[in-house]
Amino acid sequence: MLEARLAEAAILKRLLDSIKELVTDANFECNEEGINLQAMDNSHVALVSVKLSASGFKKYRCDRPLPLGVNLGSFTKVLKCAKDDDVCIIKAADDADILSLTYEARNSDRIAEYEMKLMDIDADTLNIPDTDYDARVSMPSAEFTRIVRDLSQLGESVRIEVSKEGVRFISDGEAANGNILLRQTDDDAPPEGVTIEMNQHVNLTFSLKYLVNFAKSSTLSNVVQLMLSNDVPLLVSYDFNQGHIRYYLAPKIGD
């Protein structure tokens, strides 16, 4: 069985908001170390990977590995019924087809109980190879959100270039183009500043609609890390106290 008590429902609400438009159904894989989710979007272009550590919960118990197959739309609806600062308890019995959620109000005696149907999901888990990335960029997550939103007004794709100069985001639209250069900030470290580590010049093109989607995770962390190597998927990573959310995005190649 699983019994997990989260100090604030907000984390789960934000996580669901970050993945619900990318993925319809997914397995939350629970084991004694915590809860993991890995899922690809329908077109197999993007993959999201979530980790919630057992230590990030106020109380956590999972006797044996338990996959909780969830429709993310339904889960989002049930979580909307929780206030951000409610204590959130999730429970599932072994082989059960129901996930139960309890929301305990912080400042009153209100206790709300919900149940959600679980489903069997046949999902392929991909082996993601360990990669030594050629470039690693750390920046305020709000800045990344602004860049991808701004450029998505102009075109469908963004070219990301990391060089000695800094990191440049370039969009060539049909009617307009734009580029944004971020230099490493010498006097400011993350979360406010930008740090760039580079072993090799990197130049990759990605679809902006996915990046705009990933940027929703800025509610979970003030900092985002971009890891890039030529001709491999981009890794966009947000770390927070209880775990992380990571996105992988396959690049676009020449015309």
Partner: peptide, 14 residues
């Protein structure tokens, strides 16, 4: 602008 790759090319199915 460019052809979209899929992840299957880069990541292995177990």
């Amino acid at each position: 602008m460019g052809r979209q790759q899929t992840l299957g090319k880069f990541f292995q199915m177990p």
